[in-house]
Nucleic acid binder design. Structure first.
Length: 931
RNA sequence: AGGCGCGUAGCUCAGAUGGUUAGAGCGCACGACUGAUAAUCGUGAGGUCGGCAGUUCGACUCUGCCCGUGCCUACCA
């Protein structure tokens, strides 16, 4: 007789191997048919909302691993909040405006030989719009393949008319409350393309510059000895000299005044003149200017001469303004003279020091075409890149220089034309950080206050964002671009004052809502100005708003406009780079218009690196594509990778790490599979056993379920999925597979089907299975769905429509828990002894052994009431009480015959009989035959 | 160069307020089982806790410096 047929083995359709790459798309299709997203919304309609507001990715390419990490983490959080019973509605979005898309379209133009400037702006913008829509669709597909559950049928985009109009309305709020102002600042400017460039459009390469040493004669100085002396500056950009309005030196730097006593023939320096230089640079300057000898007149530091005033080198030639000397900590003695020439219109640092700090006016000296303004004496009409030698010569002619040279150095160039770029002063629109406009408090302090009331995950993010807000300058909203929301402002031709009229703003906003913001470029200004203003009196701003303003307004046009969402959001979640980006701009936008942050919590994750911790790059060939992992291993593996990493820090990924994830996956999958097989056909109404009637081991499992349930709920609230994953994995691994399942196999397989012990075991396994599926559902969303389907057989249901299983409080039993910690440690001690016996050939499998313990009374008490043999999975085990403190373990081969059904060895069975049946099994067989 | 982080076994991670031989899981090696079977069980070997110096009776845990690395800025006259 084949006794295998009489043993109650686990039975399930749930396959051991997932075959995820093939299975997952089928599950996605199932969810589609089921209308999972809609069903969940309906079911949670009245539940408390949980809003994780999606930071919009940029719609211009395929997903990379960083996108995958970000969206998976969001999905895990949403699904887990849903498992807590909340209405976690996820509305994905896209950022559509901006430079990179504009570039792509321009690139296409160049290939076709078209000129961007000849294409009507509306047409150009339409092409950008189409481009964004194209990638948006591709990304949507890819996100959905990752298992991300959300409102994919109705996502938000920054380019929808409604969004564009609300973005404009938001700018209108800043306009109306007075914090939007017209200023100017130096921007990177390409004279060739006649356009401003973004940082990202600039590349550095070598450039040969004409350098000059120019003298600034002292007019007044705290040090009397410097009367009649000159400060000498060095610059690589002679063309900025007409724009010079100041100088800077370092407070701590030692300088000397030097009377020149000998020069080479070609030197421009004059014998007898006194020049000031940093001591450290004296020799190099002498070398380059042909000064041979000089006497030290006096020594001093920058601090001694702060507040000095000098003459411009071209003084009395039309540059008759005074040039003040300021202290600046960025002045170094690495090169130059120790004195830095300051042209506030031609460098960010110059601007900050002279204009922002000292209030020096910023002159407009260079036109869009890179030509020095015609009205400027001597240099008018000269080109900033081509005419530097000429400028130097003229300055020399008028005695302004003590040296001319050249320098090859790294210099910014335009990415597109590869021509050198310059800093040029340009009119810009700013949002003030400090002006009082919201309840009498400046934006900066409102924002800082808001951050105090925001939860950060990890906590260090708060410090980072605070220090950025503390230090940032006013928000420059202007971009000299085409693809974006225009800054919807008019300003007066004469006064330069922006037009602040809510009626005008409203007309603009409603036009944008109906026709999109292209109308700003295609409709006459009168349409917006209405009858109250004369078109001829106003200039219409044609700048595009910084795209960070777009995405910074998502709370306004998504959270506040959708009935199914709310503001502020519970959570914003992005990579740590977004401290500078979305977290930052959203905070400022919301604080400036609503006086509060648009989020209650901010979670940041790290960046994805390769297995060695290097950043991914095409040249290193270490790029891991999410598409490839999905194709080879499945999205669940990628999702498992996310939660098995410490995502607050940078994450690593590579072949070995993926391999480890598949190992972990298999462990969890096999645990589910075993449970599914074990509870096959389980009927709760007739089979279930109450905890009080269960063996203690079963009550220990229930206790563990209760313990885990609490930990998992707590960790869910803290967004700590790494912790959850570890708990679940170790539970599957150590508690269930290696211990509980193994110990209970005999009972499950061989005991009489309806024995109390077996029913208790199946009851506990049924609970464990339900808990486990619900616990892993947020992460292994596909596998959990598949397991649940195998469990219920109900095609109309999904685990994702459920919550974490209810675990009754009374399952907790700390006394049992404490006791079983001790029992298990005792058990592993005995396992060592069994292993030793196995290695010396005394025994093979555990059932071929019998164990005899000599133990203390305490140990014996610990094991009281427990079937020691089944705990150890041996054929027999007994315990004697001895007076020894240490446990003595003796293992020997079990004597007797082996039961052909349960494989245990019994002394009463004849060893030679290969058909012997033990008494337990005989009873079971009789009962079975009576069925 | 500056701001904010990170650096514990091959891999992923634990290690309140400094205190006995630094933990877990995976992987690996060896073994067992063949009734979870491209599974399962057991045992074991792996770490100068990035480096150096200091504070302390005592530091993976505190301080300083250095090295490596990531994000964000600045790369300038």
């Amino acid at each position: 007789m084949d006794y295998k047929q009489t043993v109650f083995l686990p039975k399930t359709e749930f396959p051991m191997r997932g075959g995820l790459p093939k299975k997952e798309p089928e599950i996605l299709e199932r969810w589609q048919k089921l209308g999972l997203y809609d069903q969940l919304r309906k079911a949670r309609k009245n539940a408390p909302k949980f809003v994780l507001h999606d930071g919009p990715p940029y719609a211009n390419g395929q997903l990379h691993i960083g996108h995958a990490l970000n969206k998976i983490l969001k999905d895990v959080i949403n699904r887990s909040q849903s498992m807590l019973g909340k209405n976690a509605n996820y509305v994905p979005g896209w950022d559509c405006h901006g430079l990179p898309i504009e570039w792509k379209i321009e690139e296409q133009y160049r290939k076709k030989g078209k000129d961007k400037d000849e294409v009507p702006i509306a047409e150009f913008r339409q092409e950008c719009r189409d481009f964004a829509a194209h990638w948006l669709n591709i990304q949507s597909e890819e996100f959905q393949r990752l298992g991300i559950l959300g409102d994919w049928g109705n996502p938000y985009t920054t380019m929808r008319y409604e969004a564009e109009s609300i973005i404009a309305a938001e700018m209108g709020k800043f306009l109306m409350n007075g914090s939007l102002y017209r200023g100017s600042k130096p921007v990177m400017w390409s004279p060739v393309e006649k356009t401003a460039l973004a940082e990202a459009e600039v590349e550095y390469s070598d450039h040969k510059s004409v350098t000059i040493f120019a003298r600034f004669k002292v007019v007044s100085c705290p040090l009397q000895e410097l009367q009649g002396a000159s400060f000498v500056i060095w610059t690589t950009t002679p063309w900025t000299m007409p724009g010079n309005r100041a100088m800077a030196c370092g407070a701590e730097i030692p300088y000397s005044a030097l009377r020149i006593t000998e020069t080479s023939d070609s030197s421009l320096a004059k014998l007898g003149e006194v020049i000031c230089l940093a001591d450290e640079l004296k020799d190099r300057v002498f070398d380059e200017t042909g000064i041979v000898k000089a006497d030290v007149v006096t020594r001093f530091t920058g601090a001694d001469i702060a507040g000095s005033v000098a003459h411009h080198p071209m003084f009395s030639q039309g540059y008759d303004h005074d040039v003040p000397l300021f202290l600046a900590d960025y002045v170094t003695t690495e090169q130059g003279t120790g004195f830095v020439h300051i042209a506030p219109g031609h460098g960010p640092e110059d601007y900050a020091l002279a204009h922002l700090k000292h209030g020096v006016e910023v002159p407009d000296t260079v036109g869009e075409d890179g030509l020095i303004a015609e009205h400027l004496p001597l240099f008018g009409g000269m080109h900033v890149l081509r005419d530097n030698q000429k400028i130097a010569d003229i300055m020399n002619e008028y005695g302004g220089l003590i040296g001319i040279g050249t320098l090859v150095h790294s210099y910014p160039h335009s990415w597109r034309s590869h021509a050198p770029v310059i800093y040029r002063n340009a009119a810009q629109w700013f949002v003030s950080m400090g002006d009082e406009h919201v309840d009498g408090t400046g934006l900066r302090s409102v924002a800082l206050d808001a951050l105090q009331n925001t939860d950060f995950y990890p906590a260090s993010g708060q410090k980072r964002l605070i220090s950025m807000i503390e230090n940032r300058p006013d928000w420059c909203l202007s971009r000299q671009r085409a693809w974006g929301v225009p800054i919807p402002v008019f300003y007066h031709k004469q006064t330069g004052e922006p037009l602040r009229d809510q009626a005008v703003v409203d007309r603009i906003v409603s036009a944008f809502a109906e026709e999109g913001c292209d109308v700003w470029f295609t409709s006459p200004a009168a349409r917006f100005l209405g009858a109250d203003y004369n078109e001829a009196d106003y200039i219409q701003v044609k700048d595009i708003a910084d795209v960070w303003f777009d995405s910074g307004s998502t709370h306004a046009f998504v959270l506040e406009t959708r009935e199914d969402l709310q503001s502020p959001a519970d959570l914003y979640l992005e990579g740590s780079d977004q401290h500078r980006g979305w977290f930052h701009s959203s905070l400022l936008e919301s604080c400036g218009t609503r006086g509060q942050a648009p989020y209650k919590g901010v979670l940041t994750h790290g960046f994805v690196l390769d297995e060695q911790g290097r950043k991914m790059s095409k040249s290193l060939g270490n790029v891991v594509a999410p598409q490839k992992i999905i194709q080879q291993n499945g999205a669940d593996i990628l999702r498992l990778w996310v939660v098995s990493s410490d995502y607050y820090d940078d994450l690593r990924i590579g072949p070995e790490i993926i391999k480890r994830q598949t190992d972990h996956y298999r462990r969890i999958r096999n645990t589910l599979r075993y449970l599914l097989g074990a509870v096959n056909g389980f009927d709760r109404s007739t089979e279930a056993v109450q905890p009080a009637e269960m063996p203690e081991l079963e009550r220990w499992v229930l206790h563990r379920l209760a313990e885990l349930d609490q930990q998992i709920r707590e960790n869910t609230c803290a967004y700590d999925f790494h912790g959850i994953f570890t708990l679940i994995h170790d539970f599957c691994n150590s508690d269930l597979s290696a211990f509980y399942f193994d110990v209970r196999k005999d009972c499950l397989y061989c005991d009489e089907q309806n024995s109390l012990d077996r029913r208790a075991c199946r009851t506990v396994m049924d609970h464990a299975l339900q808990c486990l599926i619900s616990w892993v559902a947020p992460v292994l969303c596909f596998t959990a769905d598949e397991a649940w389907l195998a469990y219920t057989g109900d095609e109309t249901d999904s685990i994702h429509l459920h919550t974490y299983m209810d675990v009754p409080d009374h399952w907790r039993d700390q006394l049992v828990a404490d006791r079983w910690v001790k029992i298990r440690s005792l058990r592993s001690e005995i396992m060592v002894a069994l292993e030793a016996a196995r290695n010396d050939g005394t025994i093979g499998g555990g059932l071929s052994a019998e164990v005899k313990l000599t133990a203390s009374q305490d140990t014996a008490d610990l094991l009281n009431g427990i079937d020691l043999a089944s705990l150890l999975i041996t054929s027999a085990a007994e315990i004697d009480i001895g007076d020894t403190a240490n446990l003595q373990i003796s293992v020997r081969r079990a004597e007797g015959g082996k039961c052909v059904r349960c494989w245990k060895v019994f002394a009463y069975l004849p060893a030679e009989n290969e058909q012997a049946i033990c008494s337990r099994c005989e009873t079971v067989l009789i009962a079975k035959s009576e069925d």
